[in-house]
Every structure is written in structure tokens, then in C-alpha cells.
Design a protein around this nucleic acid. Structure first.
Length: 220
DNA sequence: CGCAAGATTTCT
DNA sequence: GAAATCTTGCGT
């Protein structure tokens, strides 16, 4: 079983930081056209929105990310461009989705300028509202990990290379002003650590997560 | 063209 | 600790 330990930070109140009644601004390609190690921590607190084929909309607060970039031995495009990774050489703001271990998908946001292969892996979401098919008890950890996140939001390789814009199957929205405010006040904070599951580039501290958030894939 | 390894998850 | 499961890309 997974560790369902409650947050230890009494200030962590995502309902207060992200009230549901105000629509934040969508994130555009220009904002994402920066170094992945800059974008990755700034994406924490932003919202991933999924529009299903049947019109259903799912929303999740991004609570854990990892950066991948040029010169990084863990990056899929480290050696050269291939059919799989070529989307990361293109413009920012499109999806890069790949199959891992034959059974899970990982969702990335392409970042930085064209011809600079880089992306941010979205590793965990705090799902906003309970989908009809999900038991309430499982909501908190239903998107705690890149594979579980894609399973919950029904993201697979057919979505790779799509632009992340409203009306598309996926898009991003900026932090709510109150989330930003609680960051400034120190009530919310980010933790920076090394990335997970790698055999190369292990030492690079390019993973960020919302401190004490129970929806994060793992601590440390 | 064969094959080992993989940005994971879950069960024993 | 190990299985599930299959694509990718490197080495032969």
C-alpha cells in the first residue's frame, strides 16, 4: 500500500490558495519558451486542464515537476533527434507524451526555443473535483506519479505534439493570484531535489514539488 | 535485425 | 524484491 500520510504543514490549504470561482489566465507558448529549469518550478501551482472527447473537463493542480534539457544525459534527445523525441526540438507549448515500461505514459510540456530540446515532465497533480468514475477515497493519490496522472486524465501518445491551448484536449492555466500570494508569504513553498527513476544525470537537482503536499508522488 | 533498458506502478 | 509489458534505439 502507498503511504497516505497527511501533510505536516498546517499552512498547506490548496482550497484557499486556489478558489474555484475565479478563472486564471491561460499559459501561452511564449511563457514556456524559456529554460526548462526555470519553467519547471514555475509550473508548480499552475493547472492542467483536460478536455475529453465527450466534453468532460478534468482539472488538476500541478504539484510536482522535473526539468529535462540540452546536455542532460537523462533526456531522451541527449544523443540525437529521433522519431519519438523530435517534438522536443520544436516550439514550446506542445505536448510530448511517450510510453514507458510498456504500460504507462508520461506527459511533458515542451519548453525553450526551437532547436533546444527540452521539456518539463509533469509528475503529479492534485485533482480538483471528483470524476464520476473515481472513488472519493482515492482522489488524493489518483494522479500522484507520472504514470498514474496520465491514466487518470486519459493521456496517451495520440496527444503528443498537440498545442497546449484552450479548446485542445489539454492546456495549462497560470497560478491563481492567491496561490502566488501564499508563496510570497511563505505559507506555501517548493522543495527542490534530484529526479526520480534515472540511471544517468542522477545528481542534477531538477525536480520540484509543493512542500508537504499529499498528492506528490514521493517525499525527498 | 536482435536485444537490453527504460523519466513506472503494483503486488509479494 | 520482482513482475508486468512493449517500444525504442543502440550495437552487431
Amino acid at each position: 500500500m502507498e503511504d497516505l500520510q497527511a501533510p505536516t504543514n498546517p499552512n498547506l490549504d490548496l482550497n484557499a490558495a486556489c478558489p474555484k470561482d475565479v478563472a486564471p489566465l491561460e499559459i501561452d507558448a511564449q511563457w514556456l519558451s524559456r529554460d526548462s529549469t526555470i519553467v519547471a518550478p514555475e509550473l508548480i501551482g499552475c493547472t492542467l486542464v483536460r478536455l475529453m472527447a465527450d466534453g468532460t473537463i478534468l482539472r488538476g493542480l500541478i504539484v510536482e515537476t522535473e526539468a529535462y534539457g540540452p546536455g542532460d544525459p537523462a533526456m531522451h534527445a541527449y544523443r540525437r533527434a529521433t522519431a519519438r523525441n523530435q517534438v522536443m526540438f520544436g516550439v514550446a507549448g506542445v505536448a510530448y507524451v511517450y510510453l514507458i515500461y510498456g504500460m504507462y505514459h508520461c506527459f511533458n510540456v515542451v519548453t525553450d526555443q526551437p532547436n533546444i530540446p527540452s521539456a518539463v515532465l509533469i509528475r503529479a497533480l492534485q485533482i480538483e473535483t471528483l470524476p464520476s468514475w473515481l472513488e472519493p477515497q482515492k482522489l488524493q493519490r489518483a494522479a500522484a506519479g507520472p504514470g498514474k496522472l496520465c491514466r487518470a486524465f486519459q493521456i496517451d501518445r495520440t496527444l503528443t505534439a498537440i498545442p497546449l491551448q484552450p479548446g485542445q484536449p489539454l492546456w495549462l492555466e497560470h497560478r491563481h493570484p492567491l496561490f502566488q500570494q501564499q508563496m510570497t508569504e511563505g505559507k506555501l513553498s517548493l522543495t527542490q531535489t534530484t529526479r526520480i527513476g534515472l540511471t544517468q544525470g542522477v545528481e542534477l537537482p531538477w525536480r520540484w514539488y509543493l512542500t508537504d503536499c499529499p498528492a506528490v508522488s514521493r517525499k525527498g
